[in-house]
Design a protein around this nucleic acid. Structure first.
Lengths: 192, 192
DNA sequence: GCGCCCATGTAACTAGTTACATGATTCA
DNA sequence: TGAATCATGTAACTAGTTACATGGGCGC
């Protein structure tokens, strides 16, 4: 199977939940799945054109009064089939790249305070992210049809992955900060 | 500051530890930092040319008997400066993309067994990865100069990040498998 | 009046991937 | 004898990013 852009499937996936414009899709990525996915406008708009050209989605321009017209995309049966086919395939995860870690291991000559600040910031970001997923969690279950539904449970699973991984990251930050403070103290002792 | 390819800095970072050929650099990525970084040959070889052209590294062809000649690259003072400058800058993490999670949340119509298998495989992969970082941990401290050194502690911090995050992932997998088994049982009960 | 949100797109770029091509040596 | 490792590279591609361009409406 030739690997096609993952963006295709991400967009098809969202469209399988509800019709959406390019703007809506971006918003969905930023709000609902930002924890594990992201897209940018330029790419969304260009892939939407492809989807339409291939008959996987169809465009419908909706006039709203007072607001600029929206190009709303609907998934087609063909698109739904393409999506399901992809969902059934084994996951091919792209290897991660953590710039923070890369920087850390090469930072023997960098002042410790610089590293401490980086970790502190990283920790703050992850605390915020953890708060956000907890907010999202509440939202899922506020839907009337959520109780006992398969989709709500699958979303809960997604939320949980954020909770586990953010928690782990925050713990690692705490441990790392202790280590760095230790190094700092020792090096300070050498140059009194 | 215009953002240049992160590959540049990854390679400069490795070269700051020791001179290396393209092949060596690839190996280092696969073995020492695969937990949080990756590179492929094509990109390495093309970026090495850039580094040389910009005077950040210099090439030295070494003839070895019985083995093909190696193009070994040495970091220059200019390269070292460029690297340190990057290390001092704030981290700009590229947002993550987890295909597994993306698939899960759209998988309402996918047979539960398919999802269970995906999670099981993911768990296995992370158990292996965890074992590997534990191996790597031993290696760090087997170096004679490791004890008390700053670099060994920084590498230990890197290793720890893997330990924390892989552990969290494995726990999440266990919880998720329970949830999925539950869903399976219930759906099975509906269609006796 | 200012800034944010809604809304869509293009142009230019570059970073990174896949596939191809080659060939010697070592180890099982 | 066949697979793995050592070793370097090119060609073709595509996925994804950044910057630019525009403009009305809404709330403070």
């Amino acid at each position: 199977m030739t690997t096609k852009s993952k963006t295709r499937y991400a967009l098809l996936g969202i469209l399988s939940l509800h019709p959406a414009s390019g703007y809506d899709l971006k918003k969905f990525c930023d709000e609902a799945v930002s924890q594990f996915w992201n897209e940018n406008y330029a790419h969304i708009y260009s892939v939407l054109k492809e989807l339409e050209a291939e008959g996987l989605a169809r465009k419908q321009t909706e006039q709203t009064d007072k607001r600029p017209p929206k190009n709303v995309y609907y998934i087609t049966p063909k698109g739904k089939k393409e999506l399901n086919n992809w969902l059934l395939q084994p996951v091919r995860e792209t290897p991660p790249r953590y710039e923070l870690l890369l920087k850390l291991v090469f930072s023997t000559d960098i002042p410790i305070d610089n590293l401490i600040n980086k970790i502190k910031q990283y920790k703050e970001e992850h605390i915020k992210a953890l708060d956000l997923v907890k907010e999202g969690e509440k939202e899922i279950w506020s839907y009337p049809k959520a109780q006992g539904s398969k989709w709500a449970r699958l979303w809960q699973i997604g939320v949980n992955s954020g909770k586990y991984s953010y928690k782990a990251t925050i713990d690692w930050c705490d441990e790392t900060l202790e280590t760095l403070e230790e190094i700092k103290k020792e090096s300070g002792a050498e140059v009194p």
